[in-house]
Design a protein around this nucleic acid. Structure first.
Lengths: 223, 223
DNA sequence: GTCTATACCCTGATAGAC
DNA sequence: GTCTATCAGGGTATAGAC
């Protein structure tokens, strides 16, 4: 892999950064070309339109999450819950390394782009779904540490929402305070879930079956 | 208040909607003018530049949150925790009424705009801080229902992050599934916090003082 | 305060030589 | 695959009459 960076790769990489920093619409093609040290001709050779570049950037981001956030975390030490928090730790590191521009890159792109670019929007939803499934898998691996009546799908969605919200706010405030607070609270929640009085083994006799959310969530119709 | 809508108000209102839906940069001034049934001349009479309109829109959104999300919730029935969840319920309603456009309006604007418009960015951070304080006040009102050693600032940040993340994702997926799941989990977390074995009164003798997050969060340096 | 008309620039995109 | 030169169109903003 001593191969040098190709023009195509440079274009995608710098476009990704500029899109995170300034948004898609605010970033001109010329700006990308200039900063990637390419030319107009080669740009339109690789990407017939700006939207094609956007799609490539989205895939690029998905790849980063795979290779630098979820991937490494799944090989982290400790039990499944620890691996889940390793995901957050890696996210945090990306946030820090990028000077806070890598905050909810999917979410903010989606917010800007969803209306006018259905193709891109569909891809973004797809990626987000993948993340939620990844988290749910980790929760399934951790099922023995968690209450047996836990709604893992719901908890996975919660984790992803929190992750994205915290990252977005870290980006906006240029500070990790909110991100760290959120992670700490999430850890506290997990430690309560893992506590013995809550963690009843799948034994017929159930100790004080505290009513879970679903019943009283009746008025929160889910669509 | 039978006063008719002024041109200025119409401009701000439609601009707000268009900015949420398409983003700031993707929305042309002409588009706003047309949809608000105004004209170029009157537009630039009120707003010397497009950025000035953006500032007005941001304030408008803050006002909506005040009058339709936080305000009504603070008069809701029930204890302080219930009032907190009333905030989320009102947010949910706005999300629904707007056809999911009103999802993290501050967060997504901030993401798009922060780099190039320092003034707007500052205002957005300020507003976000206000929300966090509002939530923290509610938690303070609810202090008797919560563990006495609870870090309320941290929990408030967590609630806001979750709220924003869930709203953003509701918007992206055009579904309340993630939002509702997040609220349900948050409720579960609160119910665990409120549970008797956790809720030790400020009595010298403390029952099984489970270590809270702060100690083990040492490596999560907060900036 | 509101209108019409228009200036001016930067945008994404193309053509065709090398 | 890469370059330079250039186009057509939409962008923000202005001028000046009413």
């Amino acid at each position: 892999m001593p191969r040098k960076t190709t023009t195509r790769e440079r274009l995608i990489g710098t476009a990704a950064e500029l899109f995170w920093k300034q948004g898609y619409a605010q970033t001109g093609v010329n700006e990308i070309i200039q900063q990637a040290q390419a030319t107009s001709g080669s740009f339109y050779h690789f990407f017939p339109t700006k939207e094609d570049l956007l799609l490539a950037v989205v895939d690029h981001v998905a790849e980063i999450f795979e290779t630098e956030v979820f991937g490494p975390a799944s090989e982290a030490a400790g039990n499944a819950v620890e691996r889940l928090f390793a995901v957050l730790e890696h996210y945090r590191q990306r946030l820090l390394d990028s000077g806070f521009i890598f905050g909810s890159p999917m979410g903010s792109l989606a917010a800007e782009v969803s209306e006018n670019h259905p193709l891109v929007h569909a891809r973004l939803v797809e990626i987000q779904t993948t993340w939620t499934e990844r988290v749910e898998e980790l929760l399934t691996d951790a099922r023995d540490q968690l209450p047996h009546d836990l709604d893992r799908g719901s908890l996975a969605r919660f984790v992803v929402s929190t992750m994205e919200g915290a990252a977005l706010q870290a980006r906006v405030t240029h500070s990790l305070a909110l991100f760290d607070a959120s992670v700490a609270q999430l850890r506290d929640y997990f430690s309560l879930l893992e506590s013995p009085e809550r963690h009843v083994e799948p034994i017929p006799v159930q100790v004080r079956p505290r009513p879970r959310m679903q019943p009283q969530a009746a008025d929160w119709r889910s669509w």
